[in-house]
Design a protein around this nucleic acid. Structure first.
Lengths: 338, 338
DNA sequence: TGCTGGCACTCGTATCGGATGAGTGCCAGG
DNA sequence: CCTGGCACTCATCCGATACGAGTGCCAGCA
């Protein structure tokens, strides 16, 4: 077990390294933090910390930098979540309040988060399956061509084009719309499939194929793999690190361009609390020198989606966690209002 | 006026430089291209080309690289548009055909374009003002809370929430919907404002404020500044150049993150033909060492939006132009079908 | 007039070596 | 268990040198 002081040394190393981006030595440590012991003592502590795998030195004559394990300990035991200043909070609220629709909310959120944390921000749209149905609309663009519009209580709107096997009359369409909405409005999308399974049975024999196709399309939009949407922003912030990461920026950018990777990244986050994945804890190779801070957000108690940031393992964890948490809360509020 | 051979030398320099990314010297030129003259002759031609400002040498003992003016001449006079291989064309078609909605079309297009050109792709959504109205839907989420849904002939769907001053009955809403659609369906969005200006007059006095707000919101969605949407992809491709562009990648990424800059970038493109803006021809400082190849696309003869790529001035212009043009055509076809 | 071979020259890049200094590990003493 | 001292390791920073690609110019030739 590590003594109190050694933990203090680790904390000091993490803080200094995050600030200066340079390996930190024993002398500098004792000077900048009032540790009350000599460099030699700190050196011993460092050697111990290195034995335990919390820090390591890039080369023999260099200072120490935290390992992933070191950051993990720092995040779990040594650091809190730094609350935002009231100015920052006001800025968040002002910035998010002007949004006109969900796209706008997500767009503003991602820009805001990127700017606050100076890192890459990732925001997932409220997932359909965790939202409730506000309305299902059916529009006849042509006699046998229907547009299906799904509207969720979180403001998300999805549309699909459907080619029907037979023309649908206006009355039929109105009928389908009414019965469909009667069954599903207010329900959670995840519960929808069984609720509509027998819907075609209530219609004339000739109309059933059209109704079935319509329902099939509705259910298709709910498939988890395809329904998720994600917005990314602040990729330019990656260039802030490339002076000592020239090799790593490329795979990171490539990873971030893949929707699936992003989804998994957020998906791994714990549903309720905030999740921090550090370096090699990330499943994706390209992201081995990055950390992900993510948290769920929602209009009520329950999370409807997640958001977070991706940055170098050498990031300001307390500050980032504070910003991510604060933004998630405000977004939840905005969603609840709309 | 430049002699035939000097133009040939310029073309050879551009081609070699694009291929090798290194300044090209007289000896290498004569060897790799069958110019039929000696290096010394080429040197004289190079000196002349340099006097005219088409090429320049980074330092005394280095080869030549084309200037923006040189690329301009190359694009205008020396290079054609390289058509895609039939395999590439098939790939485009296959890739775009699976799209389920407009977001999907745009998303696939941007990925496709980035992959084909190995550069950063930019695709603008069909602009509302250049599209026609397919349908306007009004949904009552609550008695005094209306959702306005606009659907264009290009498949774009916009929604806005409206808080009405007074509750609107279902019949009133249906009435507004019917009259509104009667006036605007099939019309171009740009023509909509005068068509609906007197619409509130036809309603009961008490209902007019609600109808007016509704119309106001409809017109707001058409404001050019805010209605435009853009998708960007392939930013990871920027890292391909950073070995000799370490300084420039940052401002480029920052520029690309600004919606307004992107819009201007595409907006400057000529409406009909393909536009190539080279280096300093771009208004934005950060993009001074990049070129933009853009072209309009649309379901019919007329462009409804633009798409293009952003890459280093040292790019394969014929190939890029071929890919951009081909993709624009296929996207136009897809839109026409939907 | 225009092309060519030759030649001196420039200058960026790569290589090597030594000096510098930050930082360490270890040890003896308090 | 802490501390001061000391020898040692290396990464980094010049400065000098060699190298070589590429040029400009010139005299000669078709």
């Amino acid at each position: 077990m590590l003594s109190e002081r050694r933990l203090e040394v680790l904390r000091a190393i993490v803080q200094d390294y995050v600030g200066t981006e340079e390996p930190v030595g024993s002398k500098a440590l004792t000077e900048r933090h009032g540790l009350g012991v000599s460099p030699a003592t700190v050196r011993n502590d460092m050697a111990a910390l290195e034995d335990e795998g919390y820090i390591h030195q890039p080369h023999t004559s260099a200072g120490r930098i935290p390992t992933d394990k070191g950051y993990r300990l720092f995040v779990d035991k040594l650091a809190g979540v730094k609350p935002l200043t009231s100015a920052e909070r006001r800025a968040i609220q002002n910035f998010l309040d002007g949004a006109v629709d969900l796209d706008d909310v997500v767009g503003r959120t991602v820009r805001l988060l990127a700017q606050l944390t100076r890192q890459v921000a990732v925001v997932q749209y409220p997932s359909l399956t965790r939202s409730s149905v506000r309305h299902v609309e059916l529009l006849a663009l042509a006699p046998a061509r229907i547009m299906l519009v799904l509207i969720t209580d979180t403001g998300r709107v999805e549309q699909r084009l459907i080619d029907c096997p037979a023309p649908m009359s206006d009355t039929l369409l109105a009928d389908v719309r009414a019965r469909l909405n009667a069954r599903v409005v207010g329900r959670r999308f995840a519960d929808v499939p069984p609720l509509v399974a027998d819907l075609p049975d209530g219609f004339e024999y000739d109309d059933r194929p059209s109704v079935s196709i319509l329902l099939a399309t509705l259910l298709e939009t709910l498939v988890e793999e395809t329904e998720e949407r994600i917005m990314l922003g602040g990729a330019a912030n990656l260039t802030r690190f490339n002076h000592d990461f020239p090799l790593t920026i490329r795979p990171v950018m490539e990873a971030l361009e893949e929707q699936m990777v992003l989804l998994k990244l957020l998906g791994e986050a714990n549903d309720s609390g905030m999740t921090v994945r550090i370096g090699h804890e990330n499943f994706h190779e390209g992201l081995n020198s990055t950390s992900v801070v993510a948290v769920g957000y929602g209009s009520g108690d329950e999370a409807v989606a997640k958001l977070g940031v991706v940055g170098p393992t050498r990031m300001d964890y307390p500050g980032t966690m504070g910003a991510v948490r604060a933004v998630a809360r405000y977004v939840g509020q905005i969603l609840a209002e709309s």
